[in-house]
Design a binder for these strands. Structure first.
Lengths: 223, 223
DNA sequence: GTCTATAATGGGATAGAC
DNA sequence: GTCTATCCCATTATAGAC
C-alpha cells in the first residue's frame, strides 16, 4: 500500500470515530435528562432515541442495552463532576477561602448540570442498585480525602474542632439540593430558580459553614 | 328490627371496616418501601402484593390502579410528616430552641421513616409529575408559614437578618439527606448509619444554623 | 450504520366464577 | 373479597435486508 493511500484512508477513519464520539455524546446528553425525569425504569429507549433524532434500533447499535446506556450516563456524570471537585488540595489556601470555593463549585454544578445531579441522586436514593460499586470505587475515596483535609485543618488548629464527616455531608446536602429539590423550591418561590437565587443560597451556605468552623476557642459577642 | 339485632349487626360492620383499614395500611407500608427502592415505574404491584401477602388481583380490589396506590402512599407520607412538623408556632419560644426542636423533628423523621422520605424525594426530583398539585396545596403553605416565622424573628431583632427562605432550604436539605443519601453515607462510613451518627449530624446542623442566626450585630472573637 | 420486521417478556388492568 | 384466566399494551431486544 502506498503512502498516498494510507494518508487518504486514515483521516477518514479518524473523522468517523469523532463523529461517533459526538453522536454518542449527543445521545448521552439526552439520556441524562430522560433518566432524571423518569428514573431508570420509567425512561424508555424509544423516548431517548426520538429526542436525540434517531431510531430506537439505531440507538441500540451504539448502546446495545439500556443498562449500558445508563452506566455510560452515570460514568459521564461522574467524570464531569470529579473534574470540577478536586479543590481542597492546596496546602497553602486559607480554610475559609477553600470552603467558599468548594461550595461555589458544587453549587455551579447544580446550576449548570441539574439533570446530572438528579440522575445521580435518584440512583443513590434508590440504594445505588446499579452503580454502588462505581460509587465505592470513584466517589468514596475522594470524599474520604476531603474529610482528611478538614481533619488536618482541625489538627493544625486552623478551624474549629467540628465533626469533619458531618460537615462534608452538610455541605453536600445543601449544595446538591439546589439541583435535586429545585422543583419544590420553584413551587415555594412561585417561579423558577434564578442566578440570583443561587447567589443568595451560596451566601447563606457559606455563612453557615464558615461560621461553624470559626468558633474554635472563640465566642459570639456584641460588637 | 329489634334493638338486639341492630346491636349485633353494627359491630360486625365496624370490625370489617377496621380490618379493611388495617389491610390497606399494611399494603401502603409495603408500597412505600417498594416505591422508594424502585421508583414509580420500577415498582410493580405484583411485587407489592407478594410482599404484603396477597395476590396482585386482590390488591387491585383495594387500590384499583397503580396510580391510586401511589397517591395514597404519598398522601400517607405527607400526613405523617405534616403531623410532626408544625413546630414553629409558639410565639414565646426562643428562636435557638425552636430551631433545635425543628431540626430534631426533621432528623427523627429521616431516621424513623427513611422510605417515606425517599419516595417523596424521588417524586420531587423527577419534577413532581404526579404529585405537584398536592405539594402546592399541602406543603407550600406550611413552608411559607415557617419562612414567615423566621422573618418575624428577624423583624423583631431576635435573630440575625439572614435570608429566611434559603435558611429553611438549607435546614431541609441537611436533615432530609440523612434519609435520602444514607446509602452513600453508609458507603463513606463503611457501615450503616447508627443513632450516634444521627446525633452527631444533629449537633453539626444545629451548630451551623444557630451560629448563622446568632451573628446579628455581633462578631466572632477570641475568648 | 441504518432500516423494517418481529420476537419475547413483563406488567397493568379486566371479566367472571365462587 | 378472593380466585383463575386472560387481555392488552409498552418496551427491550434481536434478526436480517440493504
Amino acid at each position: 500500500m502506498s503512502a498516498a493511500v494510507k494518508s487518504a484512508v486514515k483521516p477518514v477513519i479518524k473523522r468517523r470515530v469523532l463523529d461517533r464520539d459526538r453522536l454518542e455524546a449527543d445521545i448521552v446528553a439526552v439520556a441524562v435528562r430522560v433518566f432524571a425525569e423518569s428514573g431508570y425504569e420509567g425512561a424508555s429507549i424509544a423516548s431517548v432515541a426520538e429526542q436525540a433524532g434517531l431510531s430506537k434500533q439505531n440507538l441500540m447499535y451504539y448502546f446495545p442495552t439500556k443498562q449500558a446506556l445508563y452506566q455510560r450516563v452515570l460514568d459521564d456524570v461522574l467524570d464531569e463532576w470529579l473534574a470540577r471537585m478536586d479543590l481542597l488540595a492546596d496546602p497553602q489556601g486559607q480554610p475559609a477561602d477553600m470552603l467558599r470555593a468548594y461550595i461555589q463549585a458544587k453549587l455551579r454544578f447544580s446550576r449548570e448540570h441539574p439533570w446530572a445531579s438528579r440522575v445521580y441522586a435518584l440512583e443513590v436514593i434508590s440504594g445505588a442498585p446499579l452503580y454502588g460499586e462505581q460509587i465505592r470505587r470513584r466517589v468514596v475515596p475522594l470524599v474520604r480525602k476531603d474529610i482528611e483535609v478538614f481533619e488536618r485543618w482541625i489538627a493544625e488548629g486552623r478551624i474549629a474542632p467540628v465533626n469533619a464527616t458531618h460537615l462534608l455531608f452538610a455541605i453536600w446536602a445543601m449544595t446538591q439540593s439546589y439541583a435535586d429539590f429545585a422543583p419544590q423550591m420553584a413551587l415555594v418561590l412561585n417561579r423558577k430558580l434564578t442566578a440570583r437565587d443561587f447567589a443568595e443560597g451560596e451566601k447563606m451556605i457559606v455563612e453557615m459553614v464558615v461560621c461553624a468552623v470559626s468558633l474554635k476557642g472563640k465566642q459570639i459577642v456584641e460588637t
